[in-house]
Design a protein around this nucleic acid. Sequence first.
DNA 1: AAGGATTAAATCGTGTGCGATTTAAATGTA
DNA 2: TACATTTAAATCGCACACGATTTAATCCTT
Lengths: 152, 152
Amino acid sequence: MANPAPELYLENQLCFPLYAASRLTTKIYTPFLEELGITYPQYLVLLTLWQFQEQSVKSIGKRLFLESNTLTPLLKRLEQKNLIQRIRSKTDERTVMITLTQAGMELKEKAVEIPKKIVESFHDKIISEDEILSFQKTLFKLLNVLDKKVSE
Amino acid sequence: MANPAPELYLENQLCFPLYAASRLTTKIYTPFLEELGITYPQYLVLLTLWQFQEQSVKSIGKRLFLESNTLTPLLKRLEQKNLIQRIRSKTDERTVMITLTQAGMELKEKAVEIPKKIVESFHDKIISEDEILSFQKTLFKLLNVLDKKVSE
DNA sequence: AAGGATTAAATCGTGTGCGATTTAAATGTA
DNA sequence: TACATTTAAATCGCACACGATTTAATCCTT
């Protein structure tokens, strides 16, 4: 038996390279985010707030595919860093609204530099701009399909 | 100011959809892996052992882009489930060799069914087979570039 | 052969992820 | 209006990830 079960080979998987690439890209972000004193998931939460302003925990979760069990502690950490405020809604006491503090809003100015630096550090001729764009397109399509599958 | 800093939009990021898609695909695997009594990272370790046989912790880490701080506790859990053995090498006492137990080898027969089931559950006409293949190709290229960048 | 440098695992602490459950508020319906 | 149902956060426990450090063994150079 030369090579049984090639369907189980790492290089034939889709999930494994997604998993590995996700972790490695996070690693690329880390030194830049350390300068802002935040982690990658915390950065994602701030991205949603910078882009969409005040939001409930639920709403942030929908955008990032996360739930309160992950977000609540993470948001408390952002609150302790004085970047956000957590305020229980008066009209519906079940929901907690998240708003940026002044410091949270100001952090955006520093964050704007990050994507540029990341892209610069990626001047690698192995992958063309076009290839990345069509890759990104499929990635978002995949994300959509996965989201539907998971919530079935 | 209509729409400041579009470079910070979630939909313009590459890392975010990777992060989300990775987590969602893991979620798709979970119910299948639960039947085998293992987690997704544990499944990946078993994949390397099924494919490449006996290996050191280091070697498994190279293939999965993980280090001993993650692998050691994970491997101890696999050992407790009686799926692998951890044996310190006689020729180089620094390295720990990981081998499959009989139960670990036999689990492969069950695992072979998983990729089929996943693919089946993905019969979604939004993404063609070709698109997935070229996506996978770019993904592995990206993984390569990232790995180089990270280890710089 | 001695001693510093390197290497492989392990350990430690912090921060996610997430399934499952709990708590409390709002909603729907008889 | 009562009361079951639904919903939003929070809580709990477990398993990763990973930076930083420690421990022990091997290698390298003189």
